[in-house]
Simulated assay, not measured.
Amino acid sequence: MTPPKFSARAELDRLTRYNSGLTLDDVAARAKGHPIAKLGSNENPHPVSAAITTAMAEAIARPNIYPDPSARVLADEIARQTGAAAERVILGDGSEDLLNVLARAVLNPGDEVVTLFPSFPLHEDYATMMGATVTRIGLTPDRRIDMDALLAAAARPVRLTLIANPMNPAGLWLGPDELAALLAAQHPDSLLCLDEAYVEYAAGPDYASGAERLAGHDKPLLILRTFSKAYGLAGLRIGYGMSNSDDVIAAMNLVRTPFNTNAVAQAAALAAMTHTEDMARAVAATLAERARMEQALAALGLRVLPSKGNFLFVDCGQPSAGVADRLIDCGVIVKPWKQDGFETFLRVSVGLDWENDQFLEAMARIV
């Protein structure tokens, strides 16, 4: 029987399915007995603390009860640690869910969204889904954020300026002066959203989080964060947003699903925020390995962009899809970048030391 035809929304014709990366099972047959180094999804490879697994076990013992739809205990803890107002904290099924919620809450057909490029694809896809147009702010010829272009775009009455800081996949970031300039340039009729998924890896005097400016900023600002990266809860899907605008949070609450964070994820996230020793050790190990990997790749003659994330953006000097495919035979998963102008780049996550060694040894043979 021929499957029946059905026409979806016209905007979807401009989208491609999000590339979620390869799983361990996807590459097991080709790895030829190699241990598999999964370095394609920017996960935290270190184990979580016992406090988190205990909290998860206690929460899962009550599967018949709906979770708190506002995650009030967790929101209060987020507010306590960040300085945000608890009533302006919103939880989501990962921060990428909140990107979807944001698009549905604020974007109309024909609206303009400004974002950095190369980008996290969902920054563009959800805007396109809503019929908005996307303006890309690319990198300069020496592979830096084009601040002049970003400030000029943000100063216009665009509907939404949505940027990752640090950037995914490039790893680049706004310094304190650059963030201050962006906040000052922001048009008062525009919403500025800072996606800070990798903020825990970005500490240092040359980086500033938008959370530090939230309370004193006089224009609409939204900050998104996740428990998927440094906190190691990618499998549970939970993230959060913070705003200085009651209107932004109210709009997002209207369009999100009522129970968009499950009870186990809420319990794990609360335990993660209140037992941070293991997370801090994992971040420190990642930063040390990131520096080692950057030096080793540079020694191979490869250009590596500076990074404040738990990943590196590497110019292979040849199509990265082919490099990534050959790495699979060595038991290594990375993410070749396919956006226009960056087809020779791959993004590699910083894993455990043995995973990073396996990647570096394979790259030395391939390139």
Rank of each mutant, 00 (worst) to 15 (best):
I52T: 06
W173A: 08
D76K: 15
A127F: 02
I223F: 09
E178A: 15
H123D: 07
E289S: 15
S307D: 00
A37E: 05
A154C: 11
I238W: 01
L24T: 11
A153C: 05
F342M: 00
E277S: 13
G232C: 12
S41L: 13
K38E: 14
Y207N: 08
A234T: 08
G171H: 01
T135G: 00
G210W: 05
T2H: 11
S41F: 10
L98K: 01
H46L: 13
A59K: 02
T82W: 07
A164N: 14
A86G: 00
A10L: 14
P258T: 14
P69C: 06
D195A: 14
A185T: 06
D111R: 12
P109L: 11
V304T: 05
A84D: 02
S243N: 08
N165M: 11
A184S: 11
D142C: 08
T161D: 03
A10T: 13
R237T: 04
V158C: 12
L254E: 15
P45N: 10
G232V: 08
A154S: 12
R156W: 05
R256C: 09
L122I: 12
M273N: 04
F259M: 03
H46G: 00
L270S: 01
L327P: 00
E200M: 13
E196V: 11
V332E: 01
A75P: 02
T276K: 14
R136K: 15
F259A: 03
G204K: 13
V114L: 04
L297M: 14
A215G: 09
D148M: 07
R292Q: 12
D329W: 00
G351C: 08
D315Y: 12
G241M: 03
D353S: 15
R303G: 01
G204R: 12
R104N: 15
L15Q: 07
R303C: 04
A282I: 07
A251Q: 15
Q81Y: 02
R290T: 01
L99E: 02
T226C: 06
A202L: 09
A288P: 00
G40K: 08
E196Q: 15
G210H: 02
G204I: 10
N244F: 06
A263N: 04
V101T: 13
A28R: 15
Y231L: 10
M167A: 14
I36L: 05
S243L: 10
G317K: 13
S95A: 13
N244A: 05
E124N: 07
A291H: 09
D195M: 13
H217W: 14
